[in-house]
């Protein structure tokens, strides 16, 4: 027969679903930390001399903060959305697929905007400095495809039911 309650796991806090408002704050924190991290990296590499003062330490802290916020985001809806099919039930697969579709549209727009920016930079006399500034945006092309579906799920999943 069935037990009425499941024993709480030692790590249940890590997969306990957050309220949607907190999840959204976490999404914003993840991308804000990453954006500031890129700006600090850019400043560090372009400064004379390179990496003045504690800028390097700030970059490391921001990187760790980004990674920590993203890792928490992975299980913030109460399950790791971006995982193997067999670990998700049919509703979760539906949510994940919808998130991928939405993320794909957003990425298409971003790639389009970046392409236009690159075309503009190529036609500019001071193209080299534009390309340097573009390096601020290129890392997004790596980070966003990997993180956006997870962020979309965390952003859109409604608040968890009150009773478990």
């Amino acid at each position: 027969m069935h037990s009425s309650t499941a024993a709480p796991s030692r790590f249940s806090w890590a997969v306990r679903p957050m309220a949607r408002s907190r999840r959204r704050l976490l999404v914003l924190a993840t991308y804000l930390c990453f954006a500031v991290f890129l700006v600090v990296m850019y400043r560090g590499y372009t400064a004379e001399p390179r990496w003045p003062g504690l800028l390097g330490l700030v970059a490391v802290i921001l990187f760790i903060a980004t990674a920590a916020a993203f890792m928490r985001l992975v299980t913030a809806p109460g399950y790791a959305a971006d995982t193997l099919d067999r670990r998700l039930d049919e509703r979760q697969r539906l949510v994940r697929d919808r998130a991928y579709r939405l993320a794909y549209y957003v990425l298409t727009l971003l790639f389009g905007a970046l392409s236009l920016g690159a075309l503009y930079a190529a036609s500019n006399d001071d193209a080299w400095s534009s390309v340097r500034v573009a390096t601020l945006f290129v890392p997004w092309l790596t980070f966003l495809p990997g993180s956006l579906p997870t962020a979309v799920v965390a952003w859109t999943e409604p608040d968890p039911p009150e009773d478990i």
């Binding site: 009425s4 309650t5 399950y79 039930d89 968890p160 039911p161 009773d163 478990i164």
Partner: peptide, 29 residues
């Protein structure tokens, strides 16, 4: 049957939130 959502979800092999969605009619299994 005195079952929590979590217990039913465990028995069915689904996430407990999915049980809530089905109960509320927000998701058709």
């Amino acid at each position: 049957r005195g079952l929590s959502r979590q217990a039913l979800a465990d028995a069915l092999g689904i996430n407990y939130q999915t049980v809530g969605y089905i109960e509320r009619g927000d998701f058709n299994p």
